Simulated scan of single mutants.
Amino acid sequence: MENRDVISLISKIREKVNRFIVSEMVKYGIEGIATSHGDIIYALFRAPRLTMADISRRINKDKSTVTALVDKLVRLGYVTKERDTEDTRVVYVALTGKGRELEPIFESISQELLDVFYSDISDKEKEDLLHILKRIYGNF
């Protein structure tokens, strides 16, 4: 393997991780949600009510993409949208009861994913990997 193969390998790992997450969600009876929807749901686990702009910043996606993702989550019953009463340009998003029920499932899937991801990887190697990936991310 050459140094230039690392980008391809990272891409392949991302694909495998996404497939793993989706297949685990299906095992829990959750269908119709992509990993990009999960980013929004996770953001709402940490803050119960966010504006579309806040979500866009937190998940690093443009507002039009976030709007499409949120609209699907609304249709599936996981989130609600509400306009600000004073500034109707601002839209708030919040989890519904159905959306909040996903938290223990998502946490379980995340733990399973991490167990597979870091199988046979030492704590030192984990730290080194994270450090290197952060530096590479910062290059862009």
Rank of each mutant, 00 (worst) to 15 (best):
K124C: 13
S108Q: 06
Y42D: 14
I21A: 06
Y42G: 11
L114N: 14
R14I: 14
G138H: 07
L69H: 10
S110N: 09
D5R: 06
D120C: 11
V116Q: 08
E82S: 12
A47R: 12
E31W: 08
T35I: 10
S122I: 06
G29V: 10
D71K: 15
T80V: 07
H37T: 08
N3F: 05
F106L: 15
K98G: 03
F117K: 06
K16C: 01
A34K: 06
F45H: 11
N18K: 15
A94F: 04
R135T: 12
P104W: 03
N3K: 09
R4I: 10
Y42L: 14
R100C: 03
F20H: 07
K72V: 12
S23G: 02
D5E: 04
H131G: 06
K61W: 02
V6T: 09
A47D: 10
R89H: 10
D62P: 12
R49A: 07
S64I: 12
E103S: 11
S8L: 13
I121C: 05
A53S: 08
R89Q: 15
I109F: 09
G97F: 08
Y92N: 13
T67S: 14
D71T: 07
T35Q: 02
R58H: 05
R75H: 12
D5A: 07
G29D: 02
P104K: 13
D115C: 00
M52Q: 10
E112Q: 02
Q111L: 06
E24R: 09
V93E: 10
V70F: 01
S23N: 15
V74I: 06
I7F: 13
Y137M: 15
E31S: 07
E103K: 14
S11I: 14
I109W: 13
R49V: 05
I109E: 01
Y42A: 08
R75T: 11
S11H: 15
K126M: 14
E82F: 01
A34V: 04
T85C: 07
V93G: 13
F20C: 01
S108A: 06
P48E: 12
I109H: 12
T96E: 09
S119G: 01
K72C: 02
F45T: 05
V66Y: 00
I41V: 12
K61D: 04
S110I: 10
T65C: 03
Y137F: 06
F117A: 15
A34C: 02
D54T: 01
A94M: 13
I10D: 08
F45N: 04
F45W: 12
V116P: 00
